[in-house]
């Protein structure tokens, strides 16, 4: 059977044909046995499928669903606050927590490890040949503004290095790397 005719028959069964076309196809079915048989078979199939017994939910369905919802609420996964409010709020709270941790344990806090790397004098920082110098905490303190500051011993060490660099000395001799 022609594919277009087959399609028209499907559309006729689905009630998708305009009135005029519907009349045409019905007339054609009266004169074309093969097409009429096809129409009947598909119609029968649809009626079989449409009359399948519907299955019923088990008697426990509602109570099981209630239990699952209760569990859901207990786990706190559901709330009456809409997600578009809840998600940004959670994100904000998360960011605040990270910030608080950073302030508590970040590099400028007293709790940040046992050692710290103090600021190098500008001259040392700008020189490509100079390796960073590490000072133990006893040579580094915090000034009034909360910035790291070398203790007097540390400042002496830094001044000695600065002098050495200015006089073109061997940097390596004066760099004291503290074993942590």
């Amino acid at each position: 059977m022609m594919e277009t005719l087959q399609q028209d028959i499907f559309d006729l069964i689905d009630g998708l044909l305009p009135l005029q076309k519907r009349k045409e196809i019905k007339k054609l079915l009266e004169n074309n046995q093969e097409a009429a048989q096809f129409y009947q078979k598909i119609k029968d199939l649809r009626s079989q499928l449409g009359s399948l017994q519907s299955v019923k939910t088990s008697p426990d369905f509602d109570s099981d669903l209630r239990a699952r919802i209760r569990m859901e609420k207990r786990l706190g996964r559901s709330t009456l606050i809409p997600e578009y409010v809840r998600i940004p709020s959670l994100a904000f709270a998360g960011a605040a927590a990270v910030m608080a941790l950073f302030l508590a344990f970040g590099p400028n806090s007293d709790n940040f490890g046992a050692n710290t790397q103090a600021e190098l004098p500008a001259l040392e920082q700008n020189s490509p040949n100079v390796q960073p110098t590490f000072y133990t905490l006893d040579r580094v303190g915090l000034n009034k503004e909360g910035a790291t500051q070398l203790s007097s011993e540390g400042q002496r060490q830094a001044a000695s290095r600065r002098d050495s660099i200015r006089s073109g000395g061997n940097f390596g001799e004066h760099i004291q790397v503290v074993e942590f």
């Binding site: 699952r68 919802i69 859901e72 559901s78 997600e83």
Partner: peptide, 8 residues
């Protein structure tokens, strides 16, 4: 459950 959770 999804309808309940994602109603918004």
């Amino acid at each position: 459950l999804r309808v309940y959770r994602k109603r918004h």
